[in-house]
């Protein structure tokens, strides 16, 4: 296996994306809203179409703004439907994202009468291509070169860490005990929308940079893995970041390595990162110290022996 400078950047970008997603992902898992990433990544389509129609350009900034606005709206609408209509939260999410996607599809078909705008090529980045799009920095006379995606994702990661750091107590209490949060004067609704905005921006930024599979996976899987291993929220967040970085490294290596065993070229890195996150989850599921499958099996057989 040959390792290039390119591969290092791919791993770094993947790890940045994964950890930027894993942190809000912890709260999504705790609040039982893990499907939000999937919902948002489907729902942003009309945002892209409308942004394109307004500005008439495919610049990534206007696309990003359009997508992020619709991402927040997705969270808002599904909250409204489940709150006012008393519809199950999963169902209301499904209603909103399918409807928005359909609307986006129609808008794009209408727009493509006039110009080229293909849903799949607008915003869905590819992790392998990120090192090709470089940003140059001049700092104290030194010049740096870094992939644009890595810079964007670093910003997102810093924003996520800062927001969670500032509102840590509020996030924690309103995730575990909304009633207590209310008595303490914490506006649970506001915190909820803050989290949803964070998730929407992270999702949109990440799949504009590196593609959607990795985002959907990283919002759920590392957080769920960490949840199996610990009961402390801070530890859970660190563990999930650790797993997401591990998945990024293992994923890219296996994307190069596994096909080469069969004499084939490398496969999609972001897909393999998702698969590796899954493997890590599987390991945690089986071997988790308190609630792993093995542990449960031993406890069961022990009590069974005792009963005999």
């Amino acid at each position: 296996m040959e390792w290039y400078n390119l591969d290092t950047w791919i791993v770094i970008t993947g790890a940045l994306c994964a950890s930027a997603c894993a942190i809000p992902g912890c709260f999504l898992v705790l609040r039982q809203m893990s499907m939000m990433g999937d919902a948002i990544s489907h729902a942003v389509l009309p945002g892209l179409a409308i942004a394109f129609m307004i500005t008439g350009s495919r610049s990534s900034l206007s696309m990003f703004v359009g997508a992020a606005v619709v991402g927040v709206l997705t969270a808002l609408f599904s909250q409204w439907i489940s709150q006012f209509g008393k519809v199950d939260r999963g169902a209301s999410m499904g209603i909103v994202f399918t409807s928005l996607f359909a609307l986006g599809l129609i808008l794009i078909v209408q727009a493509s009468n006039h110009v080229e705008l293909d849903a799949s090529c607008v915003l869905y980045g590819a992790l392998e291509l990120t090192p090709l799009d470089l940003w140059h920095w001049e700092f104290l006379g030194l010049s740096f070169k870094a992939p644009r995606a890595a810079c964007v994702l670093t910003m997102i990661l810093v924003i996520n860490i800062t927001v969670i750091g500032i509102f840590y107590k509020e996030f924690k209490i309103s995730s575990f005990d909304p009633a207590l949060a209310k008595t303490l004067g914490i506006h649970s609704g506001l915190i909820h929308y803050l989290l949803m905005t964070m998730v929407a921006i992270t999702t949109v930024a990440a799949f504009e940079a590196v593609g959607s599979i990795i985002v959907i996976a990283m919002l759920v899987v590392p957080a769920a893995t960490a949840y199996l291993l610990t009961e402390n929220l801070v530890i859970m967040m660190f563990v999930s970041v650790f797993f997401s970085i591990a998945a990024a490294i293992l994923g890219h290596i296996s994307a190069i390595l596994v096909p080469s065993w069969f004499g084939l070229n490398s496969t999609s890195s972001s897909a393999m990162i998702a698969v590796m996150a899954g493997c890590l989850f599987l390991i945690a599921w089986i071997f988790a110290p308190k609630q792993g499958l093995l542990q449960n099996y031993f406890i069961k057989s022990k009590s069974h022996n005792k009963a005999r």
Partner: peptide, 10 residues
């Protein structure tokens, strides 16, 4: 969410 993302990635 886990099954969706991992199977799709696979």
């Amino acid at each position: 969410g886990i099954v969706l993302s991992i199977f799709f990635g696979l």
